[in-house]
Design a protein around this nucleic acid. Structure first.
Length: 169
DNA sequence: TATTCCTGTCCTG
DNA sequence: CAGGACAGGAATA
């Protein structure tokens, strides 16, 4: 991961799932990240981007609000232009994830089949873990074939909360 | 139940 | 460059 556009900006907000950041370039949303605290998020941004994006709370206020709305109610999907950086394989996986509607789940094996690599189940899990845009690329909707929730980059607790919120109709 | 193999990417030595 | 780890899972014994 090495998104590195000089135009990248970020803003930090809070949600029921904790502090989060949105990062956007002129090409769209580059990242939505959770963290334990503001410093924790800044450290994550430094790790992910060669050049730390500039903070722009005012310019990204609308986007921040949209992201917060999606986190609060994942069933409400906001149309955002996404610009995640990743390998071809990773983008294939992420595109497949975006086809899983709110309230539904798919197994890692389902996703592997969908992208035409039915045996790449483990690689799919790895690509999910590398997803830089939480919520908007719904990696939390990918669960294990045996019914277990599977892991989550930002903690099993957040995954469980998201799935519970989406299941409640 | 435990082993083995599969897959793509990243990290470490 | 080699080997291990990883948010998994099917096949095999």
């Amino acid at each position: 991961m090495h998104s590195n556009l000089s135009s990248a900006r970020f803003a930090i907000g809070s949600s029921p799932l904790g502090v989060f950041a949105v990062v956007a370039s002129d090409k769209g949303v580059a990242a939505i990240l959770f963290g334990a605290s503001r410093p924790d998020i800044l450290a994550d941004l430094r790790r992910r981007f060669e050049v730390l994006p500039q903070e722009d709370a005012k310019g990204l206020a609308t986007l921040l609000q949209q992201a917060a709305a999606m986190i609060t109610d994942p069933r409400r999907s906001v149309a955002l232009t996404l610009a995640p950086r990743g390998t071809k394989f990773q983008r294939q996986v992420w595109d497949a994830l975006r086809q899983i509607p709110p309230g539904r789940t798919a197994s890692y094996a389902d996703v592997a089949r969908r992208i035409g690599s039915p045996r790449a189940v483990r690689a799919v899990a790895q690509a999910c873990a590398a997803n830089p845009i939480a919520i908007a690329i719904p990696c939390h909707r990918v669960v294990r074939s045996d019914g277990a929730a599977g892991g989550y980059r930002w903690g099993a607790k957040r995954k469980a909360m998201l799935l519970a919120a989406e299941a409640a109709l």
